[in-house]
Simulated assay, not measured.
Amino acid sequence: MDYIHLRDMQFFGYHGVLKEETVLGQRFRASVSLAVDIQRAGQTDELDNTVSYVGVYDICKEIIEGTPFKLIEAVAESIATRILQQYEGAVFGCRVEVIKPDPPIPGHYKEVAVEIVRGTFS
């Protein structure tokens, strides 16, 4: 199994349960790993034999900067579902991490995040 990684993409969105999150918005980060077979792409040097990094980035941007969700779990699920649908047959599985670096939670911590794995990812 081969993998494509898009790490630490940064966006601004309005996801959250609290009113200030949906009104003021906040930063989000996302990382995506795709389980793929890219041997042919490595042999041919042809874009048609791999998954477009731009396409995956655009999916993440559209979802994170688009219609708000209450939960980052739903954001991650939406990203994974869209990637697996759009790249059916090319992507066998995906791991999606969505991070809120500055959620309005009292206390000391680095960030909060969810990570999901969908499809076949070994």
Rank of each mutant, 00 (worst) to 15 (best):
I83Q: 07
I105T: 05
Q39P: 00
Y3F: 10
A30E: 08
V56S: 00
G93H: 07
R82E: 15
I59K: 02
G89H: 10
T50H: 14
Y57N: 07
V56R: 00
E115H: 01
A113G: 01
E111A: 11
Y57R: 03
V23C: 10
P101S: 10
A80S: 15
E111T: 08
G107N: 00
S31M: 04
Q10Y: 03
V56A: 05
F121A: 15
E115G: 08
Y3D: 04
G89I: 06
D48Y: 12
E73I: 09
V56Q: 01
S122Y: 10
V96T: 11
V117W: 12
Y87W: 10
L84C: 08
V23W: 06
S78Y: 05
G55Y: 05
G13R: 01
P104V: 05
L18Q: 15
L34M: 09
L47R: 12
Y109A: 09
L6T: 08
A80R: 03
K100P: 03
H5N: 12
G107Q: 00
L6P: 06
E65C: 13
E73V: 12
A80Q: 09
D37M: 02
A35V: 04
Q43S: 10
L71V: 08
S31L: 05
R7Y: 03
H15F: 03
I64Y: 07
A76E: 12
T22A: 11
Y14L: 03
V23Q: 12
E62D: 13
Y109I: 14
E20Y: 01
G93D: 13
R29F: 03
H15K: 12
P103C: 09
A113W: 05
D45T: 13
C94N: 13
Y53C: 11
L18G: 00
P103H: 12
D58E: 14
R95L: 12
P106F: 11
V54N: 07
A74P: 00
L84T: 14
P104H: 02
P68N: 11
A41I: 00
G25I: 02
E97V: 02
D48S: 15
G107R: 05
A35M: 15
I59M: 04
A41Y: 09
I64D: 06
I116N: 10
F69C: 15
V51S: 13
C60N: 00
D102I: 01
Y87G: 06
V51T: 05
P104R: 01
V114Y: 13
E115I: 13
P104G: 11
F28D: 00
D2E: 02
P101T: 11
Y14A: 02
K70P: 00
V17D: 02
T120G: 12
D102P: 07
T120V: 12
V75D: 00
E97G: 07
K110W: 00
V32N: 00
A30N: 04
T22V: 11
V32M: 01
G93Q: 08
K61H: 07
I4T: 01
I105N: 02
V91C: 12
F11V: 04
V91P: 06
H5S: 14
S78A: 15
I59L: 05
A90H: 05
P106T: 07
L6A: 10
N49V: 04
N49Y: 14
Y3W: 03
V23F: 03
L47N: 04
S78L: 02
K19M: 13
I59R: 09
G42Q: 12
E77W: 02
F69D: 04
F92E: 12
C94M: 01
G89W: 07
V54L: 14
C60E: 09
Q86W: 03
K110P: 02
E20F: 03
Q43R: 15
Y14P: 14
I64L: 09
